[in-house]
Simulated scan of single mutants.
Amino acid sequence: MLFQRDGGLQVQVRSTIEALRQLAAPGLEIELVDPNHQRLDHYDVIHVFSAINGNYRVLEVATEMGVPVLLSAVLSPGWSRQATWRADIADRLTGRLTKWQVQTSYAQIKRALQLAQMVVALGAAEKQALIEGFKLEPARIQVLPNGIGEQFFHADSAIFRRQTGLEGPFVLMVGAISPYKNQHGLVRALAQLDLPVVLIGRAQHQHQAYLQQLLDSPKVRWLGQLEHHDALLASAYAAASVLALPSQGEVFPLAVLEALAAGTPVVMTDESALSLPHSGFALKQLRWDDTQALCRAIQAFVAAPPPRADVSALVQAFTWQRVAQKIVNCYHMLHERGTRGKPDAV
């Protein structure tokens, strides 16, 4: 079901494949596995994206076949020692109540992490969650961030202005339209300001009423869902005064990286694995439900925007080409080690 919708994970998978192919590393062939028609032991290394949604079964089968696996965990940093302790108790209780016929998602995540020969964390916070929450050995973890497409570093704001007719400052929010993403909190925070809010993202059927509630505000303009390669998306980042992402939680949000690449400052949730050194002048991370702090931070960026070149420089190293080379190195490490059977330390 992965590609039945579009979001950050789908962009990560597609962008990784594209960047690896463009890298054209000698002896390396990359393809998306079709598990309905291909066996996993047709490959030398399997790269699994996300430790959730039943992906542990892929790792189990690959392990049985002796194929090493690189797992991009994509886990929330909220998996602390205390959180996993509670989840472990809930899992054991669930098992006993159902005579071990029901398994929790926590148990599946734990199983996937145990089986992977190498685990990718998107940042230091996610690595800490893997170590503290799931007792993963630090030597098995590689920290590799998501990449940013070149088009976001060279985005032209004129495309957005021309197509929308929207002039002057505005706040942009990119992501699925849902209560979890908290677009309503953003609109509420800006209620007293004469500042338009532009939303980009898809609203699923169950969130149509939520979307309509947002559109009832005369300040809100919704552009629907834009393809990731659409020039209008990159242009929207460049034209915006601020990108806001006050969601209840994010792992390593691509929208934030892309906005920064376009030179736009960001106000976002502090429930995230994203950490950029010396970024306080352009990146504010706040409690997701603190509407007053959200309003103040946005006002400050609109009144005194940081130099766009300095903002973009924060993420200059996050190109897909650099990330792809590091991923290739991980593939070679697994392949050359000839990992078979039980996971080894990396």
Results as ranks from 00 to 15, higher is better:
Met1Asp: 15
Val13Met: 04
Ser15Trp: 02
Ile17Glu: 15
Val33Met: 05
Asp34Ile: 06
His42Asn: 03
Ile46Cys: 03
Ile52Cys: 00
Gly54Val: 04
Glu64Cys: 01
Val69Cys: 13
Ser72Gln: 01
Gln82Phe: 13
Ala83Phe: 05
Ala83Thr: 13
Asp91Trp: 09
Arg92Gly: 11
Arg92Tyr: 09
Thr94Gln: 04
Leu97Glu: 01
Thr104Trp: 10
Thr104Glu: 06
Tyr106Arg: 05
Lys110Arg: 12
Arg111Ser: 07
Ala112Trp: 03
Leu115Lys: 02
Gln117Lys: 11
Val120Gly: 02
Leu122Ile: 04
Ala124Cys: 01
Glu126His: 13
Val143His: 03
Gly149Phe: 00
Ser157Val: 07
Leu166Asn: 03
Val171Tyr: 04
Leu172Ile: 00
Val174Ser: 01
Gly175Tyr: 00
Pro179Thr: 06
Tyr180Leu: 00
Lys181Phe: 02
Leu190Pro: 05
Pro196Trp: 09
Arg202Gln: 00
Gln208Asp: 01
Leu211Cys: 06
Ser217His: 06
Trp222Lys: 12
Gly224Arg: 10
Leu226Ser: 10
Ala231Pro: 15
Ala234Ile: 10
Ser235Val: 14
Ala239Glu: 07
Ser241Lys: 09
Phe252Cys: 09
Leu254Gln: 14
Val256Lys: 10
Ala262Gln: 04
Pro265Tyr: 12
Thr269Tyr: 11
Ala273Trp: 08
Ser279Glu: 07
Gly280Tyr: 07
Ala309Trp: 02
Ser312Lys: 00
Gln325Leu: 15
Lys326Leu: 15
Tyr331Lys: 13
Glu336Pro: 05
Thr339Gly: 12
Gly341Ile: 10
Lys342Thr: 15
